[in-house]
Design a protein around this nucleic acid. Structure first.
Length: 258
DNA sequence: ATGGCTTCATAGTGAAGA
C-alpha cells in the first residue's frame, strides 16, 4: 500500500482581503496540500475564491463581516464539510471541518477570551468544552485527524516570552491550559513538540513595541495530530519569514508534514 | 503609563485582537 505524504498548514491572516497577495505567494512557494486560514474577516459573498482557484487551490469558507471567519484551501477536493460545532449554536464563524485525502481536517479559531473578568472568557471555556465533546466523536469516526488553527492558548511556559509576566492571564490561565490538555487527552499530539525545536520559537508577535524584532512572542497557533498521523509525522515548523514582510499578519504560518 | 499597532466600520472615534 502506498502512503502519500501530506503537508498541511495553518495561518491566522488577520484579514484575507489585506493578506491575499501574501497568501498566494506563500502557497506558490510552499505548495501545501492544505492551508487553513483564520480571521478571514470576510462575508462569504466577498471571498476571493477565483484568485485562489487560479493559483491551483480549491476553497471552503465560513465567514462573517469584520470578525472571525475560517477557510480551508486545498489542492484536492474535500468532502463531508462541516461548519461550526454541531449542537453548539454560535454566530461566530470559528470552525470548518472537511475530509481531505483520507484525513479529517478540523480548522479552528478558538476564542481569545480577552481577559479573565470578561464575558468572553467563560464563552471561551464553554466553547473549548463543546469542541472537546465534538472531537471525541470525530476521532471515533476519523482516526486520521488533524486539529489545526489559532488556539489562543500558549500550551506551556516555554511557549511564551515572559511567562512570569503573563502568569494567570488570558492565553495561559490554568483553566485554558486544562481545556487544551483535555483535548490532547483525546489522543491528539502537538506536532511541534514531536521534534527538537529552537528555543523562543513563537507563532504570534504583538504589532506594538517592536515585539517581533525583540523576540517577544507566543506560540498559540498549533497543529495537533491524532495518534495515527503523529506516528508518521516527519516535521513541524513555524515560518516566521512572513512576519518580516510589509504589512504582515501578527501570526506566522505553522506547517506539519506526515 | 491599561499606552504601544493593525484592521474594520465609519466618516468621529471605537471595538477587538492577544
Amino acid at each position: 500500500m502506498k502512503i502519500t505524504a501530506m503537508k498541511i498548514a495553518t495561518w491566522n491572516v488577520n484579514s484575507l482581503k489585506v493578506r491575499l497577495p501574501q497568501v498566494l505567494e506563500w502557497l506558490a512557494s510552499n505548495q501545501p496540500d492544505a492551508l487553513c486560514l483564520q480571521e478571514t474577516k470576510l462575508e462569504d459573498a466577498n471571498f476571493p475564491f477565483a484568485e485562489i482557484n487560479a493559483a491551483g487551490y480549491q476553497v471552503l469558507f465560513s465567514g462573517q463581516k469584520t470578525y472571525n471567519g475560517v477557510a480551508i484551501l486545498s489542492k484536492n477536493s474535500a468532502t463531508e464539510v462541516c461548519a461550526g460545532i454541531p449542537g453548539f449554536p454560535d454566530e461566530q464563524k470559528r470552525v470548518l471541518a472537511a475530509t481531505l485525502d483520507g484525513v479529517r481536517i478540523v480548522c479552528v479559531y478558538i476564542p481569545n477570551g480577552q481577559s479573565l473578568d470578561s464575558d468572553k472568557y467563560p464563552y471561551k471555556l464553554r466553547w473549548l468544552a463543546a469542541l472537546a465533546g465534538w472531537l471525541k466523536e470525530e476521532l471515533r469516526q476519523y482516526p486520521r485527524l488533524a486539529l489545526l488553527g489559532d488556539f489562543n492558548i500558549a500550551p506551556e511556559d516555554r511557549d511564551m516570552y515572559d511567562p512570569k509576566g503573563w502568569e494567570g492571564q488570558v492565553l495561559c490561565s490554568p483553566p485554558e491550559r486544562a481545556a487544551l490538555q483535555q483535548i490532547e487527552g483525546l489522543g491528539l499530539k502537538d506536532s511541534f513538540r514531536l521534534f527538537e525545536q529552537a528555543e523562543e520559537t513563537y507563532s504570534w508577535w504583538d504589532y506594538r513595541m517592536n515585539a517581533f524584532r525583540r523576540k517577544r512572542g507566543l506560540r498559540i497557533d498549533l497543529i495537533l495530530l491524532s495518534e495515527a498521523l503523529a506516528h508518521s509525522c516527519v516535521s513541524c515548523a513555524i515560518d516566521k519569514t512572513t512576519r518580516a514582510l510589509e504589512r504582515p499578519s501578527d501570526h506566522a504560518p505553522v506547517i506539519t508534514e506526515f
